[in-house]
């Protein structure tokens, strides 16, 4: 780089500078740079290996523990079994809670969609003062810390007798369910061709078949995908449910948390098995979305 400064300029008689024939110094790498680069690479790899070892190690450890027959002091369990899963499943009635959760969340999803679709339609198709403010308002419930509304809601629900009831649990899910539906349906609705509506309204009831063929296929995939997202979102509702849940009226993740919170005496393998049942929804949704996408594709003949 030094060559730059002492760069020679040869002047011709007429004052014009001309091409200097003296070659520049040969190019050289910076030693320091190479050294630093090596150090940077090594430390990055060390960081990655350390972090991933811990992530993988702890995941494998918890899975092995849940499936291990007996594991104490040895590097690996003595043998493998699904005994702990069955035990955990039976002792804590996982199936029962799974059913309750599904019921609550499914109902809440449908209600959220029904209540929010008209709103989304207006927001997408009309312009009015304070529209942006209204949209921001709809985002508040899932951007604000949930504790802020969860505690008063719990207090209100206990005083009016909705707490520890299934309808109560469904209703509190709407606090996030409705705004979240608005949030994810809005861009979708905005992207829909407005001509669809004219088609749909001018068709009338007699041309139901046409509606079914043209309008429905365009709307259904988006709504379905949104519904799955809303469903997942509500499946993970935790704080508010924990606050108003009763012994028999709670969702799967709240039940698992309550067990893990309070039981020092249970064998860890069983607790780990119980915790891993929380993966069921994850697997369930993976299959669901695969199924839905292949189903809609087949239906739409794409």
């Amino acid at each position: 780089m030094k060559a730059e400064k002492s760069f020679p300029e040869l002047e011709k008689e007429d004052g014009q500078t001309v091409q200097g024939n003296i070659n520049r110094k040969p190019l050289r790498n910076s030693r320091k740079g190479l050294f630093l680069q090596k150090g940077y690479k090594t430390s990055s790899w060390a960081l990655i290996l350390l972090f991933l070892t811990i992530v993988l190690g702890m995941t494998i450890a918890v899975v092995l523990s849940a499936f291990g027959e007996e594991w104490y002091g040895t590097f690996l369990p003595q043998g493998y079994t699904i005994e702990w899963f069955i035990k955990a499943w039976q002792a804590y009635e996982v199936g029962e809670y799974f059913k309750i959760t599904m019921g609550i969340v499914l109902t809440a999803t449908v209600i959220s969609l029904v209540l929010s679709i008209p709103t989304v339609y207006i927001l997408a198709r009309r312009d009015f003062p304070f529209k942006q403010a209204l949209i921001s308002f709809f985002q508040l419930p899932f951007t604000l810390p949930d504790l802020l509304y969860a505690i008063p809601v719990a207090s209100i629900f206990y005083s009016i007798g909705l707490a520890e009831t299934i309808p109560g649990l469904i209703i509190v899910n709407l606090i996030v369910g409705i705004p979240f539906s608005v949030f994810i349906l809005l861009p979708y609705m905005e992207s829909l061709d407005p001509r669809l509506e004219y088609a749909a309204t001018s068709l009338g009831a007699t041309k139901f078949k046409l509606f079914q063929r043209i309008v429905l296929p365009q709307v259904v995939p988006g709504i379905t995908a949104s519904a799955i997202n809303i469903f997942i979102r509500m499946f993970n509702t935790f704080t508010i449910i924990l606050l108003i849940s009763g012994p028999k009226t709670q969702t799967l993740n709240v039940m698992v948390f309550s067990v893990l919170q309070g039981s020092g005496s249970q064998p860890p393998a069983m607790l780990n098995s119980l915790a891993l049942t929380l993966m069921i929804p994850l697997l369930f949704f993976s299959f669901l979305s695969l199924w839905v996408s292949s189903f809609t594709q087949r239906r739409l003949g794409k």
Binding site: M1, N23, R24, P26, L27, R28, N29, S30, G33, L34
Partner: peptide
Amino acid sequence: TFNGQPINKIDMSRRD
């Protein structure tokens, strides 16, 4: 090569 000097191993920040 630049003026006969191989540059394959020269870092890009040093190639001018």
